[in-house]
Design a protein around this nucleic acid. Structure first.
Length: 300
DNA sequence: AACCAGGCTGCGC
DNA sequence: GCGCAGCATGGT
């Protein structure tokens, strides 16, 4: 017997669906989800299956409706876990808000961005690809490149007249000739990085499981930076978005530096000691601090 | 039209 | 280990 097409996930305190939706729908054109009628629409790959959901919220719950794919209790369990992780629902933000409140220049965030969760990229391969795509180019262009990659090599399914894309698998990307990516305006080096790392995932030399089995943050970072194309910024970004490491700082990030200068925390982008001093006050919440600082870069 | 963008590699010291 | 040039390509 099939479970109903809808189910709910109870919300924790300090959660704002509106803030999360704002992030997912900010100024860029992300091809991997869609916002409509105050709901997020997204397709997922579950093993060999594909499903699509519509996620809305009321005061107490996230409400998930399956709009494509076969329903089963296993699929629902998978979706429950995945969406809980995606929205970071199991984290208690109150310690973070206490730290913010204690900081004169940042305390406004506890009100302005209240309930914003660190939206993740659950799939490690996708997170790494995305951070490589985003290296040293503006985000508008980065989202364009991602769209070209996804439309060329990913899959998609239709639900209620909408086409929902799924990021290409590592096996597919591993077989893509670098020249094809060049033609899509990926740089030579970036194209080679992507195909190279896809190969490592396809051969199971790298995976989320492998990374999580490593004992320390440093070990995980090293395992990632061993690949051509993954430096500290990329590794830490992926660890923050995919493994949800709470104290991962994407050092060198221009957005982060911009935000710190804008808040008068650094006098200029070279004033790194001030940055380190700030992060020292946010031990255990560095990733969230970075995410909120990024949030501050965009107007309401 | 110059300067910038959610960096990385390889080299010289 | 640290600093720095060179890179590659569109956006503003």
């Amino acid at each position: 017997m099939k479970p109903p097409e809808k189910f709910s996930i109870p919300l924790p305190k300090d959660f704002s669906f509106e803030e999360c939706l704002w992030f997912l729908n900010r100024d860029y054109d992300d091809c991997l989800h869609m916002i409509r009628n105050n709901e997020v629409w997204k397709a997922f790959q579950i093993g060999a299956e594909q499903v699509a959901v519509r996620i809305g919220a009321d005061r107490k719950n996230l409400n998930i409706e399956l709009i494509s794919g076969n329903n089963s209790s296993a699929v629902q369990a998978w979706l429950n876990n995945t969406i809980t992780e995606w929205f970071d629902l199991e984290r208690d933000l109150s310690p973070f808000y206490r730290l913010l409140s204690a900081d004169k220049k940042l305390s406004y965030m506890t009100g302005a961005f209240k309930g914003l969760r660190l939206l993740g990229i659950n799939d490690l391969f996708e997170a790494i690809c995305w951070s490589i795509i985003g290296q040293q180019i503006n985000l508008t262009f980065a989202y364009k490149l991602k769209r070209r990659l996804v439309e060329a090599y990913g899959t998609s399914l239709s639900a209620e007249g909408e086409k929902l894309h799924i990021f290409p698998g590592c096996t597919v990307l591993a077989a893509v000739p670098v020249e094809e990516l060049r033609a899509m305006q990926f740089s030579q080096t970036k194209a080679a990085y992507l195909v190279g790392i896809a190969g490592a995932f396809a051969r199971k030399e790298m995976s989320k499981e492998i990374l999580m089995a490593l004992p320390s943050f440093e070990d995980r970072q090293k395992a990632l930076t061993a690949f051509k194309g993954i430096g500290v910024w990329t590794a830490n970004y992926a660890l923050m978005k995919s493994l949800r490491v709470p104290d991962s700082i994407p050092y060198g990030d221009v957005g982060l530096l911009q935000a710190l200068v804008a808040h008068n925390i650094m006098k200029d982008r070279a004033d790194l000691e001030k940055m380190h001093r700030l992060f020292r006050k946010f031990r255990g919440w560095e990733s969230y601090l970075v995410f909120y600082l990024w949030r501050s870069l965009s107007a309401a």
